[in-house]
């Protein structure tokens, strides 16, 4: 949260102005308002048929965008939530959802312009999830893996106690099941509303990574837009392998903070995935549709080492 800035990439369903109003809403609302709410939320309602391209301003036909895994014709990898991420990552979109552990809400009794409890409640309602992270277990091109996903839409994906415990739980699950961990990071940083308790998550998640190391299980980070602040200064930069989606903003300090410090405009492409690739901080920039294949290639080889060590691999 500390460095959350660029919100432009979020999928924004456009208002109904340019699309016809659903004619059926009247009768359905009269009969069963609850049912209408369900229907309205469905992706194929006319209101959601067009999505504005954040770069060109053009309207993109939503089914086309979905078929392209929310990558615009210009190549921008739009931010996606946990559900889509699981669907795009696991074979056949099939996975076992693992519930992140419950944590104490609002440990500090924090109030800024609004109480933190209200912000939490609003985010929960808007996102339909308890906090910013989700955990899934399934197969990526046949390789069993635990996948940890951060959702920027939930309070900037911020790392608080819930996300920290979620990460620890994901790592523990991976160790328990002898599976690798893949973490899709997306966060503005630490959750300020939890004070130093959020700072401590940087150390706690780092500890969880050591458990994976001891078990010789691969830990792959996929950096997605944006990954900044305390997340970058902890588990996002401690992977055995770092992949990044194209064009993702990745950094410790947010660009605005840096500009204010040095009072200069930043070079184009600064802190983007390709820049980090050039600077040696990520191994590969991988387009979204290619991620499962790349992940399975890497995981396949890394997991074979365990087999070799156990003498289980039959050499021909």
């Amino acid at each position: 949260m500390a460095a959350a800035e660029d919100l432009s990439g979020k999928p924004q369903p456009v208002s109904a102005e340019r699309t016809p109003k659903p004619k059926s809403s009247g009768w359905l609302a009269r009969i069963a308002p609850g049912v209408r709410n369900l229907v309205a939320r469905r992706a194929d309602t006319p209101e959601n048929l067009w999505v504005k391209d954040p770069d060109t301003g053009d309207m993109i036909y939503r089914p086309d965008l979905e078929a392209a895994l929310w990558v615009t014709p210009a190549g921008r990898h739009m931010r996606i939530g946990t559900e889509l991420r699981f669907r795009y990552t696991f074979d056949g979109g099939q996975f076992e959802a693992i519930k992140p552990p419950a944590v104490v809400d609002d440990p500090l009794g924090f109030v800024d312009q609004k109480p933190y409890t209200e912000r939490l409640a609003a985010s929960r309602k808007a996102n339909g999830s308890q906090d910013a992270v989700a955990i899934g277990y399934g197969r990526i091109r046949d390789i069993p893996a635990v996948v940890f996903v951060q959702d920027f839409a939930f309070m900037g994906g911020s790392l608080g106690m819930a996300a920290g415990e979620g990460f620890i739980c994901a790592a523990e699950t991976a160790v328990k099941r002898g599976a690798p961990l893949v973490a899709f990071t997306a966060a503005g940083g630490a959750r300020m509303q939890e004070g130093a308790l959020s700072l401590m998550q940087m150390a706690r998640t780092t500890l969880a990574i050591q458990d994976l190391k001891r078990a010789r299980l691969p830990y792959i980070v996929v950096l997605t837009d944006p990954t900044t602040g305390g997340v970058t200064a902890s588990y996002a930069m401690l992977g055995d392998v770092h992949l990044a989606e194209p064009g993702a903003l990745i950094g410790f300090a947010g660009p605005r903070v840096i500009e204010q410090t040095i009072r200069e405009t930043l070079p184009p492409g600064f802190q983007r995935s390709e820049y980090l690739l050039e600077k040696g901080m990520v191994d590969r920039v991988v387009p979204r549709p290619e991620l499962p294949e790349t992940l399975s290639q890497i995981l396949g080889v890394l997991m074979m080492g365990r087999e070799l060590q156990r003498g289980r691999l039959q050499t021909a």
């Binding site: 050591q210 200064a233 902890s234 930069m237 410790f252 903070v257 840096i258 410090t261 600077k279």
Partner: peptide, 26 residues
Amino acid sequence: GAYPGVGAEERGQGEAIARSTERGLT
């Protein structure tokens, strides 16, 4: 706090901090 500058970012400020935390813990 850690320095927010172009060079620091270029040379992996986040990674450097993470590694230092990790080293302490291990």
